[in-house]
């Protein structure tokens, strides 16, 4: 039962979560906690990234070679694993962004036309 929940959450966010992680890393290498904070802030506290989805996503991205990881000392003098975007990751990010753009335009088109129809 519990496992099902995780799966569903990951699936819902998988495409978009990957996109947001890659975008966040665009602005420089970051560790997992930092990425979740960044996404929370940048979305205006709307998107709280569930840790249970974040780390699987990060490791998956690493397996795909879109990000690369390195252990470094963080701001508060602790060891943390920093992720950075690779060249392939950059290309993937651009692709995902354009796909997202197309998707939003398409949905927007449907919503706008509907709006027009229902207006008197």
């Amino acid at each position: 039962m519990a496992k099902q929940q995780y799966r569903n959450r990951i699936e819902l966010l998988q495409g978009t979560l990957d996109l947001m992680i890659l975008q966040t890393l665009q602005w420089g290498p970051q560790h997992g906690y930092g990425i979740s904070v960044a996404i929370r802030n940048r979305s205006g506290e709307m998107l709280q990234v569930d840790t249970g989805s974040l780390y699987p996503a990060l490791h998956r991205l690493e397996k795909q070679k879109w990000v690369a990881a390195e252990w470094k000392i963080s701001e508060n003098k602790q060891r943390a694993k920093y992720y950075r975007l690779t060249a392939a990751g950059k290309r993937q990010l651009a692709q995902e962004r354009s796909r997202w753009q197309q998707l939003t335009e398409a949905i927007g088109g449907v919503l706008n036309s509907a709006k027009n129809e229902t207006e008197p």
Binding site: Y33, H59, W71, A80
Partner: peptide, 13 residues
């Protein structure tokens, strides 16, 4: 390593 990574996440949080 994963253990360490998650621990460090918790520490920062």
């Amino acid at each position: 390593e994963l253990n360490e990574e998650l621990e460090s996440h918790v520490t920062m949080a």
